[in-house]
């Protein structure tokens, strides 16, 4: 329909949602950025940043990167395995795919509680397993490396299903003939993965990286609930938060925002490049 009037009506229908996003997302984000460079008297200052850095150093940034990279790596590993599995035909496939999706429906905080129970240093099921193999009980959340393991496991348990689903959607778009051809041409399983699956999946990998990467930078509830005591950008920002003087927390929030923007930029770059190749 080419009525100019209808197009105006159409635009008016979108306007509430658009205004909503502008007023409740973009303006507050700008307020955060602006607030991070000012004090309560609205004077320009870099104090908020130096305050945050003096208090925490660079460890929240480094930790956030380590957690994000580890969780992404682990979730993609699981995601590829599960997606490849579900792309095959075998008995009970639909039931299994429903089971694999279940954790997606478990609240993040509940996931945290469950993994807290499993990896508790006293009365934890993980320690039962360690003892069964002859080890002695560990204080899982006590050290950086073990708490990294716990937080990655918990986060991936809940979120790997999304990665699998996105990759699976991508795999169904690859024509099976491509694989047959490659097999005839003598390519083994690994070569087929690197030369057919991976390049053809690029746009879907970009989406999964985008969706999950941004969430990993924002990982908060699981860490806050005691699984990862070392400071992250999120937990740091939350600890700085004080409703009377929010300016230091604005600095934390802005650093977080900045890193996510940089991350998103590189993913877009990867997506565009892979789109050109394909």
């Amino acid at each position: 329909m080419k009525w100019a009037k209808d197009e105006l009506t159409a635009f008016l229908l979108i306007l509430p949602a658009l205004l909503y996003v502008v007023i409740l997302a973009f303006i507050p984000a700008l307020e955060s950025v602006y607030g991070s460079f000012t004090n309560i008297h609205s004077n320009f200052t870099l104090y908020n940043y130096s305050f945050v850095l003096n208090l925490y150093g660079y460890s929240p940034i480094v930790n956030t990167f380590i957690v994000t990279a580890s969780a992404l790596g682990f979730q993609f590993l699981i995601g590829f395995v599960v997606a490849s599995l579900l792309s095959k035909q075998f008995k009970g496939r639909t039931v299994f795919s429903a089971i694999f999706l279940l954790p997606f429906g478990v609240a993040t905080i509940v996931t945290a509680v469950i993994f807290h129970d499993i990896f508790s240093s006293y009365g934890g099921y993980a320690n039962t397993l360690v003892r069964a193999f002859g080890g002695s009980a560990l204080d899982w959340t006590g050290s950086f490396s073990t708490s990294l393991l716990v937080v990655v496991l918990a986060d991936s348990w809940k979120n790997a299903p999304i990665v699998s689903l996105i990759l699976l959607a991508g795999m169904t778009t690859i024509p099976p003939d491509l694989y047959s051809q490659a097999m005839v041409d003598g390519a083994g399983t690994l070569r087929r993965f690197f030369h057919i699956t991976l390049p053809n999946l690029a746009p879907f990998i970009a989406i999964a990286l985008m969706v999950r990467g941004i969430s990993e930078f924002n990982i908060f509830a699981i860490a806050k609930a005691g699984l990862f005591p070392s400071p992250l950008l999120t937990t740091m920002t939350y600890s700085l938060f004080d409703i009377v003087n929010p300016h230091p927390s604005y600095a934390g929030a802005t650093i977080l925002l900045g890193f996510i923007m940089i991350f998103a930029f590189f993913i877009m770059l990867y997506r565009d490049r892979s789109a050109k190749v394909a």
Partner: peptide, 16 residues
Amino acid sequence: STMIPSLTIAIPISVS
């Protein structure tokens, strides 16, 4: 808008 962290939005909103 989906890229903006909830924390970045939540703090200024709480003040408003």
